[in-house]
């Protein structure tokens, strides 16, 4: 029974137009030949080619990619362990506290988390740089991973693991041959989410970076503060496209894993 009606259709159209028109416009205008951002001067990809000559930008991209890969890997391992604890350890003492520690960073303003971690590094007398950004992103990322994987582990049919156990498999064999393959799509989703969060983060990185560890969002932010330029439009569009590509790849892999 279609109950949506004209007003419902209008709400959908307006709502999604609001969500997508701004990034759509940005993407279109990144192909604008004119240096004046708002005046359309014909189609051109020259701003994308100009990016290749921007050494600082490319350097920061390389920093960001390394940070994102390292922090997402750590976050996936730690977050999955935390999810197993939440789903499987029953009601041990301090479970509520542990759960709160997992959920708190998700709602904590990033600026507060940034200051707190910076003060830790200062108090310990440690240099800031790639490692401190990786630690910060891994801490935030692991909580997102834990939530995603927790949902998946809770949905698992325990009888599969019990059956393997009854057939004589040890706990490690059960984990690696039954549990892990079953939660793999959630692990992948968690890794990709942690990766994109790291790649996009400006606030934590600004508190925790040191000399030589300027990330891409920090570089973009500095340029954005100076004003709108066609080059920033091009970088932004590439970021949107890159994240979209990562997600599509992830969805495709998850689909294949489920099919097997």
């Amino acid at each position: 029974m279609p109950r949506i009606g004209a007003s419902g259709f209008a709400a959908l159209l307006l709502g999604f137009a609001f969500l997508y028109a701004p990034i759509g416009l940005l993407a279109i205008y990144s192909f604008n030949a004119s240096k004046l951002v708002t005046v359309w001067g014909g189609f051109s990809t020259k701003w994308y080619w100009a990016l290749l000559d921007n050494r600082l930008l490319l350097e920061s991209l390389w920093v960001s990619l390394r940070v994102a890969f390292a922090s997402a890997s750590i976050a996936t391992v730690l977050g999955s362990l935390a999810a197993l604890v939440l789903a499987r350890h029953g009601r041990f003492r301090g479970r509520t506290l542990f759960g709160a520690m997992i959920y708190a960073p998700l709602v904590m303003p990033e600026i507060v988390l940034g200051i707190a971690l910076l003060l830790l590094f200062v108090a310990l007398g440690l240099e800031r740089g790639l490692l401190s950004i990786i630690i910060a992103h891994a801490t935030l990322g692991m909580c997102f991973v834990a939530v995603l994987v927790h949902v998946r582990v809770k949905m698992l049919d325990r009888s599969l693991e019990d059956a393997a156990h009854d057939l004589g498999a040890g706990p490690f064999t059960v984990f690696f041959t039954i549990t892990l393959p079953l939660i793999a799509p959630a692990l992948l989703a968690g890794f990709l989410l942690a990766f994109t969060i790291s790649l996009d983060d400006f606030v934590l990185a600004s508190f925790l970076s040191g000399p030589g560890s300027t990330t891409l969002p920090m570089r973009v932010y500095a340029q954005v503060r100076l004003g709108v330029t066609p080059e920033v439009n091009a970088v932004s569009t590439l970021l949107l496209a890159f994240v979209g590509l990562v997600l599509l790849t992830g969805a495709a892999i998850a689909q294949r894993m489920r099919a097997v």
């Binding site: 940005l26 951002v37 989410l193 996009d200 994240v243």
Partner: peptide, 13 residues
């Protein structure tokens, strides 16, 4: 899932 920074920047434009 898309870049937060880019979405804010779009509104400056």
């Amino acid at each position: 899932w898309t870049s937060f920074l880019v979405r804010v920047y779009a509104w400056i434009v």
